[in-house]
Every structure is written in structure tokens, then in C-alpha cells.
Design a protein around this nucleic acid. Structure first.
Length: 636
DNA sequence: GAGAACTCAACACA
DNA sequence: CTGTGTTGAGTTCT
């Protein structure tokens, strides 16, 4: 047997090199210390919340946008002799229709497959650089799987090839097998899978197979069979606890697991005695040698396409096993598993806490909430402010801005709007409407409002369109879909996280602030104000929907074209939740440019979308494009 | 190579 | 029209 690993649990989790982007200081000295929340009961906690008056920003913005920009223009005039206010870049050209969908002839599956290897390994003590590498690899693989699934689910061309009643998840996995894109097939990993964090969430059994987290399509116990184990004895590697067996008993840190077998097909009840073979024997051997087992729990979730979510809960050890008579009267094998100490908090525990926080935050966490909505009802969901570390509270000192403030000139050039109006669809838009054509002949979102794939620019139906607000091509313009929370953390200063699970491809929030023209930017950059430059964000949208690993001919969309962005956003005076996003080079959200209210391509809305399934209470992070030397400096 | 395996999504129905 | 139950096609692994 392998010796126990020196350090099976990496210290870092979540986003691996997460660092703060900019430390945004309030304009003036903070108000004298308000009581920091130290309550132990919900009633006390309510006392610690800041009153509406205390939310009042130190620097109130003038109520009128015009007045605000008059101020900026006045400043600008002092320095510049002439002002070119945001002239447009490029008119809208009609769709060329040449979308990069792969030819159906390319998807002839070959039947040659590489079997799983029998080499057993443990991966321990990865360096930070390796962790980043594997996290990236896992994310890339998941995006490929999910993007393929998307295509197979909705694209008619694919349906014709595969028949109507296909299983997109299985097909996606099969296509990836052919290209040898499954992870960890060349070895059988005992213990943690590099790049998979405790608390990660998955929606498909097949996804677990593709990542090597659990290799069985249906069976709950995955193991290295005796014929392939060096010692000649089977060894269990992972189990899925989904409450499928009537004799299961799951208490979280400790659980009673029922062996597999003994049931009729598609029948809940046991009908024959279980045998000590296969996974059952493997669990027994794992107990004997004290080998750790990955535990994945399947629980209900209405944010999942299958109403079910698989959560990786970390490593457990089998401490006890016995043969018992089950509730049906037939013999079953029972295993008591106990969670190994020193690991990150259980993913299912976090899911439960997040659910309680949504219902009553002050009871679930009596200490630390400063505000239950810093947006003061400007957002569809309250944006809570949480700090249980120190007495910082700057987010309440800024006027909350749910929408970006554009210079009036952005709206001036009406000719930019193709045809003068939007689409004429009376009901929901389809692929032949004007707005779909603007997007290259396809609607950018699916029926659940998930972004199909990243593009340089996306045209949502807007003010000039006749379609109803329920049109599937109106997504990011409708505002938040998840309950977000700004929180204080040791690593990143302020950060944001969600109380809801965020599905990959979901809209998260917009990046707002005062939008400055190129000239205004040059002027204000000198003053060191908190400016955000959209053109510095790396084009991470390219990763979302990328299936070039499977279809080498797949081209990144280059349409609709986006000109170079010369504007900046001033977040030093007013801002929204997005300005608290942390930086990471293994981010979980990305920037996607969107147009809907004006069609000035030089000033798109900066929309944030999720690029992986983000569990509740995990910090959101984006790639701001700051160089490695910056990262090094900030992490010191 | 057969058969087991704690699925998934379309369809039907309330 | 939304939720829930039923059914059969569809994989990998041993």
C-alpha cells in the first residue's frame, strides 16, 4: 500500500491566486466609528445594521445625468482646447451568416477508445503554480463538455445527425473520449483530484466521469478492480451519496453508506441479498487499509437543469462495516464513513448555510452584517454587506449606481441603429429576426437565459424592438438574477459572492460607474482616480463556448465586430457591486460586451457572466489583465 | 462480451 | 402553463 501522503490537502482553495484589484478609498475620512456588529442574537444583529441615513454617500451625485456630465465637460475644457465627444466607430453591417458551426460530417465518431489505466497514484502537495495549471485544465475541460452539451441540446443540425432523443451529456462525453480529452484516465487517483476543489458543483454524472472524479456512469461506488490493483485487492476511490438507497443514513461529517447491488432494475427496493463483490469488497478493503475515499453528494437543487446537483464534499475514511438486514428484509452491506479532519468546509454544508442566509441572514449569521441592501432597492435583489473581520465599511459611503452613466453624446447618433428601429417581432424573437441577424444569425442566449458562447459583442433586443420584455434575447438588461453579497476577506479586502448557485453561462451583474470619453479619461487618469479600462480585460469571452479541442475547425467568433474601446469607467464616486470583484488569473466570471439601449459600438455595456458553475458563498473573481508582476506585488 | 449500474430528457398528464 | 411521473435510449466499466 502507498504510504500516507505528507500533505494531501492544499492550503489554497477557490480561486487560486486571488488578489485585490484596486483598493478603492472613500473620498473623505470615514465617519466616526459606528458600532461593529458583535451581536449574538438576531435582534441584536438588527441593531447593528446601519440606518438608511448612514447609507448616505459622503459625496452626493447631482440628480441629473446632464448636470453630472456638464461638470465633467467643464473640467475637461480647462485642459483641452477642443473636445471630440465620443464619435462613433463603425456602423452596423448586415450579418454575413457565416457562423462557425462545424460541418455535421466532422462528427463521425470513431469507436476506438482508450481504456482506463490501472496505475494508482496519489497527488499531494502541489505547488501554487501547479494548482493554477490544474484548475485551469479542469475549467477548460468543463467548458468543452458544457459547450458541446449546449450545442447537442439545441442545435437542430446536430439533432439530425444523432437522432431526436439523444442524451446530450452522453454524446458530449463520447465526443470528448474520441479526442482523448477526459482527464485522469492514464492513472487512477486516490484522494484529491488536482484542480477540483471541495465544494465544486456538477450537474451531470458524465461530467464527473470526464474529470476523473468518479468513473462510474450509474454505480455509486468507483474502485480499482482487483485485477488491476498492484496488491491484487480492489480499492475504492470515490462514492456518490444521493439517497438512492433506502438504508442510507447521511449525517454530514459521518454517514452510513449502503453497498450496491441487490436491487431490481429501476426499482427502489432491494429484492435479493447483496454480495461482497465489486464495489462492496473494495470498500471493505479500503477500510482495512485506511485508504481515503472521495465523497460526492447528490442533492436537490432548483438551480440545476436536472433538479439535482452533485457536490464534492472531500475525503472520508471507512471506519466500520457490517452486514445487516435492510428495511426490505434483504441483506445489505453497511459502511460507516467519517470525514477526514482539516479539510475545507463541506460543500453541502455551505449550500445549506446559503439557503438559510437567504431566508433570514441575521439568524443564520448574527455577527457581521452591516447592511441588508446597500443598493437601497435599486437592484432587483438586495445586495448585502458583510464584515466580521474589522471595522471597514466603505461600500456604504458610495452612492449605489445600478446602471452606468453614459455621456449624453453616446446616445446622439441615431443612425447607428440599423434600420432606425429594432426588430418587429410581436412574440418572442427567433433566429430570423433582425436582432438575431445582428448577432450573426443566431440568438445569443438559450431558453434559460444562459449565454451560448462568448462573442466580441452581443446585441440584445432593446428599446427599439417591439418584442415583449419576456423575449429570450433580453437577459443582461434585466439586472441581477442572483442574490449577491459584498464581504470582507483577509486575502482580497472586499469581495463579492452569491447566496445562490450560479450556473455557468449565467448573467451575474453589470460593471457600472461614470463612463468617460477618451479625452475625459486622459484628463482624469492623471489624478489617479479609480478608473477601470475595459480594453485591459483579456478576451476571456473566447473561452466560453470554445470547442476547438473537439472540432479543430471551430473558429472563435469574430462577429459582431467590436472596435477598440477607448473609454474608461470612473468608479471612484459611484459604483455598483461589480467594482468589488477580485482579480484572479483562474477567474470564474468574465466580461462580455452587450448593446441594447443605444447601439454605439464604442460604448458597449460591460456585462459579467459566469464561466463555471459557482457554488454559493464562493468568491467571484475576474481577470482584470493585470500582469504577473502586479500579482506578485499584491500577494506579498 | 454480456450485463450491471443511485441517469437524463422527452413526453404525457394533472 | 408549471410541476411531477413515466419511459426508453444510451454510456462505461468490470
Amino acid at each position: 500500500m502507498d504510504p500516507p501522503p505528507p500533505s494531501p490537502f492544499p492550503d489554497l482553495n477557490l480561486n487560486l491566486d486571488i488578489v485585490p484589484f484596486v483598493k478603492l478609498e472613500p473620498k473623505e475620512e470615514p465617519l466616526e466609528d459606528l458600532p461593529i456588529a458583535t451581536a449574538s442574537t438576531a435582534a441584536d444583529a438588527a441593531e447593528c445594521l446601519l440606518s438608511p441615513e448612514e447609507h448616505t454617500p459622503l459625496q452626493k451625485l447631482s440628480p441629473s445625468e446632464d448636470a453630472l456630465f456638464a461638470e465633467y465637460l467643464r473640467l475637461t475644457r480647462l485642459f483641452l482646447s477642443s473636445i471630440e465627444s465620443g464619435a462613433s466607430g463603425g456602423a452596423i453591417v448586415p450579418a454575413d451568416g457565416s457562423s462557425a458551426a462545424p460541418a455535421s460530417s466532422a462528427i463521425v465518431a470513431t469507436k476506438k477508445r482508450k481504456a482506463r489505466s490501472s496505475e494508482m497514484v496519489r497527488v499531494s502537495s502541489l505547488g501554487v503554480r501547479d494548482q493554477i495549471h490544474f484548475r485551469d485544465l479542469v475549467r477548460h475541460t468543463r467548458i468543452t463538455f458544457e459547450s458541446l452539451r449546449f450545442l447537442l441540446l439545441r442545435n437542430d443540425g446536430f439533432s439530425e445527425v444523432f437522432g431526436r432523443r439523444t442524451r446530450p451529456d452522453l454524446k458530449a462525453a463520447a465526443l470528448m473520449t474520441d479526442k482523448n480529452l477526459w482527464l485522469n484516465r492514464d492513472k487512477r487517483i486516490i484522494g484529491p483530484i488536482p484542480g477540483v476543489c471541495i465544494g465544486d458543483v456538477f450537474f451531470f454524472r458524465m461530467e464527473l466521469c470526464v474529470l476523473g472524479l468518479h468513473g462510474q456512469v450509474q454505480a455509486g461506488i468507483d474502485y480499482v478492480p482487483s485485477t488491476r490493483s498492484p496488491s491484487g485487492e480492489p480499492v475504492a476511490t470515490s462514492i456518490i451519496v444521493s439517497g438512492g438507497y433506502e438504508d442510507d443514513d447521511d449525517g454530514g461529517e459521518e454517514l452510513i453508506y449502503t453497498g450496491h447491488g441487490g436491487r431490481d432494475r429501476n426499482n427502489f427496493r432491494h429484492s435479493v441479498h447483496q454480495k461482497l463483490e465489486g464495489g462492496n469488497l473494495a470498500l471493505e478493503k479500503s477500510r482495512l487499509y485506511g485508504i481515503e475515499i472521495r465523497v460526492i453528494r447528490g442533492i436537490k437543487s432548483d438551480r440545476s437543469p436536472t433538479n439535482k446537483v452533485y457536490v464534492y464534499d472531500g475525503l472520508y475514511k471507512v471506519v466500520d462495516s457490517w452486514f445487516d438486514t435492510g428495511k426490505s428484509g434483504f441483506g445489505v452491506f453497511k459502511y460507516r464513513l467519517v470525514r477526514i479532519e482539516g479539510q475545507e468546509e463541506m460543500g453541502t454544508g455551505i449550500l445549506k448555510l446559503a439557503g438559510e442566509l437567504k431566508v433570514n441572514p441575521l439568524i443564520a449569521r448574527p455577527r457581521g452584517y452591516l447592511s441588508l441592501d446597500i443598493s437601497m432597492k435599486k437592484e432587483k435583489f438586495p445586495v448585502m454587506l458583510f464584515n466580521d473581520m474589522d471595522d471597514e465599511r466603505d461600500p456604504v459611503y458610495f452612492e449605489y449606481l445600478a446602471r452606468p452613466l453614459y455621456p449624453p453624446s453616446v446616445f446622439e447618433d441615431k443612425s447607428l441603429l440599423a434600420g432606425g428601429n429594432g426588430c418587429d417581432c410581436v412574440t418572442n424573437c427567433s433566429t430570423d429576426c433582425l436582432c438575431a441577424r445582428l448577432n450573426g444569425g443566431e440568438l445569443p442566449y438559450d431558453s434559460n437565459g444562459l449565454l451560448s458562447r462568448g462573442k466580441p459583442l452581443i446585441y440584445e433586443c432593446g428599446t427599439g424592438c417591439r418584442c415583449p420584455p419576456s423575449c429570450p434575447n433580453r437577459v443582461s438588461q434585466k439586472g441581477l438574477k442572483h442574490q449577491l453579497e459584498i464581504f470582507r476577506s483577509k486575502e482580497t479586502g472586499w469581495g463579492i459572492r452569491s447566496l445562490d448557485m450560479i450556473r455557468a453561462g449565467s448573467f451575474v451583474c453589470e460593471y457600472t460607474g461614470i463612463v468617460l470619453t477618451k479625452e475625459q479619461t486622459e484628463l482624469l487618469a492623471m489624478s489617479g482616480a479609480g478608473l477601470v479600462w475595459p480594453n485591459r480585460f483579456p478576451a476571456r469571452w473566447m473561452e466560453w463556448g470554445d470547442i476547438s479541442d473537439v472540432f479543430p475547425g471551430f473558429m472563435q467568433p469574430s462577429y459582431p465586430a467590436l472596435p477598440e474601446l477607448n473609454f474608461s469607467i470612473d468608479v471612484s464616486r459611484t459604483r455598483n457591486v461589480a467594482s468589488y470583484l477580485s482579480h484572479s488569473s483562474t477567474p470564474n466570471v468574465f466580461l462580455q460586451c452587450v448593446l441594447f439601449d443605444h447601439y454605439n459600438t464604442s460604448y458597449p455595456h460591460l456585462m459579467i457572466f459566469a464561466m463555471e458553475n459557482i457554488p454559493p458563498l464562493r468568491e467571484l473573481s475576474i481577470d482584470y489583465g493585470i500582469g504577473e508582476e502586479w500579482v506578485a506585488k499584491l500577494t506579498v
